[in-house]
Design a protein around this nucleic acid. Structure first.
Lengths: 171, 171
DNA sequence: GCGGAATGCATGACGCATCATCTATGTTGT
DNA sequence: ACAACATAGATGATGCGTCATGCATTCCGC
């Protein structure tokens, strides 16, 4: 790592713009969601996964992979959601170690109430301002970076070593 | 808000890719930085601002605007950084309410040690994988979204109402 | 079928982010 | 000069994210 390859001017501008944008965007989405429906963005994403499956029932590790979260984050988060009545936990019949996360009626109601507003917000602050090409660019660019993170010689706790090349259907 | 304008397929793919990427990216950067130098990304950004100014001295509100942070987040964060000896606080002569954040020697050492590695990480996971056009796209796209957040009819605590249209020099 | 590794999940400690609120100083209008 | 208000900053409570660790159960080689 001799003399560091600093970012050139364009890269620097892009980087700062990105960093600033991403901070504000998540903050914004979180606040809107919280104010409109009492859910956090994290709650929302968990609930989406659960509603996407017929019986509203998922194994924690499925959610974990679906969202690319750390295991312990999910566990803690599920506890909080459980406390608030958005989900429930059941024992898993097929795997003695396992658990099952179940969407409660309250959870279903909450996500149903939150979704339209949230999508509208996302649309307004993001997609309504982007051209088709920019949307494509965003997707390609994100996938590229994601790939590089997973390929970089850094274990990076979630999906460690190099053996778990599946994370198949991501919705 | 009659029937919500859901995201079409491309938008949805882009959105999921972005969300997943951004989560992983910040986590990745944070971990690398933490492991290599004991700094968090937040520490790093504060220190960068301080080193960019000749005497290593800034008013909290300047940092706040430079980073687009919430005031109380900054205040708490400064306290922690102070506790760790990265910065110090002084009283402000010109404004009795004010404070001054001063970069300590330890802070200067820390950022100096951290910077090369961090930049290298950013380069590796982001810029080395993007074409020039994609870098430009990233910048435009981020600025656009940022703009829309600030223009959307949502107060959004930091930089409230509509009167503080300055946040001038951000570089 | 037994011992070791891997997997699925939970938990406690701790740093971080936000909200609401508080104090003190500065500014402005009358 | 003073009341009303704005600005700079700090603080406590609380929810969130990560790390390290713990503990079952299941899997696998012998």
């Amino acid at each position: 790592m001799s003399t560091p390859r600093w970012l050139d001017e364009d890269e620097q501008r892009a980087w700062r713009a990105y960093m600033r944008m991403q901070g504000r965007l998540t903050a914004h989405l979180n606040r809107r969601l919280q104010a409109d429906s009492g859910l956090s963005l994290a709650d929302y994403e968990v609930l989406v996964l659960l509603t996407d499956v017929p019986d509203g029932r998922l194994r924690p590790f499925e959610i974990q992979r679906g969202l690319d979260w750390e295991q312990s984050r999910l566990s803690h988060h599920l506890s909080r959601m459980q406390r608030r009545g958005l989900i429930a936990r059941e024992e898993c019949a097929e795997d003695g170690r396992g658990a099952l996360v179940v969407l409660t009626d309250e959870g279903r109601r909450a996500i149903g109430a939150a979704a339209p507003g949230h999508v509208e917000t996302v649309r307004r602050v993001v997609f309504d301002g982007l051209s088709e090409e920019e949307v494509t660019a965003l997707e390609r660019l994100s996938s590229r970076v994601l790939d590089r993170i997973e390929t970089t010689g850094t274990p990076d706790p979630p999906a460690a070593g190099r053996e778990s090349r599946d994370h198949g259907r991501d919705g």
